[in-house]
Amino acid sequence: MTLPVFKPWDDPGPNFAGLLGHLDHRMVPLADAGSGMVAGGADRLPEIAHGTTVVASKYGNGVVIAGDRRATAGNLISHRNLTKVFPADKWSGVAIAGAAGPAVEMVKMFQLQLEHYEKVEGHPLSLEGKANQLSQMVRGHLPAAMQGFVVVPLFAGFDRRRGYGRLFAYDVTGGRYEEEDFVASGSGSLFARTVIKMGHRDSNTEDQAIDLMIQALFAAADEDSATGGPDSMRGIYPIVATITVDGYRELGESEIAGRFERLLDEFTEQHGGDRS
């Protein structure tokens, strides 16, 4: 791999995708290997893995973002421990719903773009700039989305210039919508959103906001077969992360397991000791 050097008028600047576009096989082996991937018609789509429910909510000056772990291909569970919530950089996170392969690739590209920008320019992008970058990536993915490989991310971050957490939702066209309170995306989002709507208060503490995400994902898993619930048998739990002035922090597995356990205990009590 050689050193990519450009003439000043031809320089891609801090744009990593632009850099990839400038290069050929000498720099990036297999650069075009996947280009024929979406040539087939929508009626001949193979069954591919889909990730499902992701949720996010604001509280105080922070944001909490969470997602279940299941991926489904048609009626089958294809992965039980898929990660759908990722740190985008130190002060932001991204969660994905939709076709798992392209979604994970999009996250990888997004993380790399933020890091690349930060290193080349010497300072990170603004939160607004990050949200717009993701919007452009989703828009660039539209041809594949039209063929069934839909990717819809959620983006949450701490705006260091303004001093509070912000939340963004997207649609397949790259439309970017800033959410004031909370948002849910994916197949189980209808149920998750209802739960969050009932429990969301502007005065919610971090602890309450996290529990609300846990309840929302539990409700989604309870009603939607494509959303995975807590799997204590295998020790697989949804991923929950908070983003505050201190940055992105993923909650430990034991903490999430504990919160689910308390939720289940409450249900059990309500049903007179019978969990069914």
């Binding site: 791999m1 050193l3 990519p4 990593f16 850099l19 990839l20 990036v28 690349h116 080349v120």
Partner: peptide, 27 residues
Amino acid sequence: IAGIRHADLKGYTYSRDDVDPQALANQ
């Protein structure tokens, strides 16, 4: 900047573990 591009491209193409200082120094 050329070094950052070299490293980020290499990490993207292969893996983060494969980015080594010696290859960069040679370049």
